[in-house]
Design a protein around this nucleic acid. Structure first.
Length: 571
RNA sequence: GGGCCAGUAGCUCAGCUUGGAUAGAGCGGCAGCCUUCUAUUUUAGAGGUUAGCUGUAGGCCGGGGGUUCGAAUCCUCCCUGGCCCGCCA
């Protein structure tokens, strides 16, 4: 908490004898910087809230931090020392530079062996494992999948920014039915390339739908695979290899990187699943059902299902996904604390996994769920081929950005076009809260105006170009009281709120908070820029304003980097 | 049938976890800001202005009920949409 709030709260605590003081921010900065609503005291003091506010205001003595109070109706409003907040905030930003906004919570808990942070935060270990993307290796990723990768990547960036040691994992479901289908579909085709996979997958799905007896062939393939048939194993490996390579290329083009790829197949043949079963047996909740399968009873966990059980094996004893997944989870839990990004379809299943892990007295992963991206005519589906491919979206966006650049500079700078295009894609997806369904619409998705990354990048470029025109040495002997405009006060307040916003985004694993914040900052800056001269102001005011916009520039850059978005010095 | 999530302006969203002052943005609409050219009596049309800015219209915050001094926010019922509920992963 900053010293401004602290000072107000200590005053109010003394005067009201309340344990918890909740301060609010008035809707309008002219009304004050912080407000205390006096309703809660009305009953006890047997006075109207307005009278209470009056009484408190008489008791208040201005100081170095809080310079004035004002009663507006039932509210007691406080005005902070604007010079002080301006000076401290701007100095802090320009000194900390790319670190500004980091609260270092990742580091602070690492240095503490145990203690209060451990109980407060869900992260308690030294290392944080973030598993995201984990797209089925059956085709080129569609836009809906990108939501997973982008949210995950942003969370990784945020955690690293806060000082956490992060390890990024990608789980490859390389032994599933869908891969078997792909193998079957590719039968007889030579040199299958990444771009062919989608068609093959859609075709084989159609074929199976028309001739369900083909399904037997799929199961046969799976069976042979599980028995370790070398030829089949290689076929799976080859096609998965082509697919993963292609997927990674696209994601890496977007600046998304992974430290470790975990292959599900690893858990198909090693003894981990057997060990897992033995361990589960000790809970006394594992039983063999009428189909001769190992099943875990999950009564008592309030799972939203008719019969709360988790099936671990097939009748023939071979493992099902949950069993392999639990083994995988165990492996990850050994390495550190876990975060997983998954679609909303995995919600119940993850609750089941969490219940299993609790049964084993292990800390379940923190799961971030997101809702699906829909198309006007329904759900996106790789199986049906009803989708917008991420790579096509990227291509279109780069084309559009290129055109815009051409309009302005009469030439296309591909690197800049990509920064703009990928920024737009990322921001467009990240600014929406993850639990919301999104309907993909080309026109909307390719817009570079309004609440978009290019708008924010533009504010950054604009500041850069001002600073280029006029280079002054950063000199802190500046009269910060010259930043007296209303817009300046609002900007400074926003800047000083940045660390708090990022802390919140970290604790709640919600990158969209950063996106929303950045837009409001860029918007406020543009407003300010149009109302007030910067370089043409008189010398002292100009120097103060230059420091202010330098600070804004730094915060925009820091914030965008948390979303994986780059900036341009000119655009 | 049951569980989870969402419903806020014509459209896309923020705000909801922690109740508080006139419910905020963007897109689209309308009217402008700064300039150039063409014709013209005061004006009109076309274009440019780095992706910029201002004003304005547009809301029973899905609906009913409840809690509270006060509800978009909390509780409850209902409606609509998304996701899920036993040998797929």
């Amino acid at each position: 908490m900053d010293k401004f709030k602290e000072s107000i709260i200590s005053f109010l605590k003394k005067e009201t004898k309340l344990e918890n003081i909740e301060l609010e921010v008035p809707p309008n900065s002219e009304m004050g910087d912080y407000a205390f609503p006096c309703f809660i005291l009305a009953k006890e003091w047997k006075k109207s809230p307005n009278e209470i506010a009056q009484e408190l205001s008489r008791k208040f003595k201005p100081n170095n931090v809080i310079v004035e109070v004002k009663v507006i109706g039932p509210y007691l409003n406080f005005f902070v020392n604007k010079n002080k907040i301006a000076e401290e905030t701007i100095k802090k930003i320009l000194k900390e530079k790319e670190k500004y906004g980091s609260s270092g919570i990742g580091k602070s808990y690492r240095s503490k062996a145990s203690g209060e942070l451990k109980n407060k935060k869900f992260l308690s270990n030294k290392k944080v494992l973030v598993e995201h993307t984990s797209i089925n290796p059956n085709a080129s990723p569609h836009v809906g999948r990108a939501r997973n990768a982008l949210i995950g990547d942003s969370i990784v960036r945020i955690l690293k920014f806060q000082g956490y040691k992060v390890e990024t994992h990608y789980f490859v479901n390389d032994v599933g039915k869908q891969i078997a289908m792909l193998v079957l579909g590719a039968e007889g085709k030579k040199n299958v390339a990444f771009k062919d996979l989608l068609n093959i997958y859609v075709e084989i799905n159609k074929k199976i739908e028309e001739a369900p007896e083909l399904e037997k062939k799929v199961l046969e393939l799976l069976n042979k695979l599980e028995k370790g048939d070398k030829t089949i194993k290689n076929k799976f490996k080859k096609i998965v290899g082509v697919c993963v390579k292609g997927q990674i290329k696209i994601l890496s083009e977007l600046g998304i990187k992974y430290d470790i790829f975990d292959y599900e197949s690893k858990y198909l043949w090693n003894k981990k699943t057997e060990e897992m079963l033995k361990r589960l047996e000790k809970t006394g909740k594992l039983f063999i059902d009428g189909f001769n399968r190992w099943v875990l009873d999950q009564k008592g966990y309030e799972l939203g299902m008719k019969v709360p059980v988790l099936v671990m094996t097939r009748g023939d004893g071979t493992s099902l996904y949950p069993l392999r997944d639990i083994a995988y989870n165990l492996n990850k839990i050994k390495r550190g604390d876990n975060i997983v990004i998954l679609g909303e379809d995995q919600k119940l299943y993850q609750e089941q996994i969490a219940a299993v892990l609790k049964e084993l007295e292990l800390r379940p992963p923190k799961v971030v769920h997101y809702s699906f991206v829909l198309l006007q005519d329904g759900k996106m589906s790789t199986r049906k081929g009803n989708l917008v491919l991420l790579e096509d979206f990227m291509k279109e966006a780069v084309n559009k950005a290129g055109e815009e650049l051409k309009k302005r500079y009469n030439k296309i700078d591909l690197k800049s076009a990509k920064v703009i295009a990928y920024g737009a894609i990322k921001f467009g997806i990240l600014k929406v809260s993850p639990e919301k369904n999104v309907v993909f619409d080309w026109e909307h998705a390719l817009s570079f105006e309004g609440e978009t990354a290019p708008y924010i990048q533009y504010a950054y470029a604009r500041i850069s170009s001002i600073l280029k025109k006029h280079k002054i040495k950063i000199n802190f002997k500046i009269d910060f009281s010259l930043l007296e405009q209303k817009e300046e006060a609002e900007l400074i307040k926003l800047l000083s709120n940045f660390p708090e916003t990022i802390t919140k985004a970290t604790n709640e694993l919600r990158p969209h908070l950063a996106a929303v914040y950045l837009y409001s900052l860029a918007q406020k800056f543009n407003e300010y820029y149009h109302m007030h001269q910067i370089l043409k102001a008189d010398k002292n005011t100009r120097d103060a304003r230059i420091l202010l916009i330098s600070a804004i520039r730094q915060v925009i850059k820091n914030g965008l980097s948390l979303l994986g978005i780059d900036v341009l010095e000119r655009m």
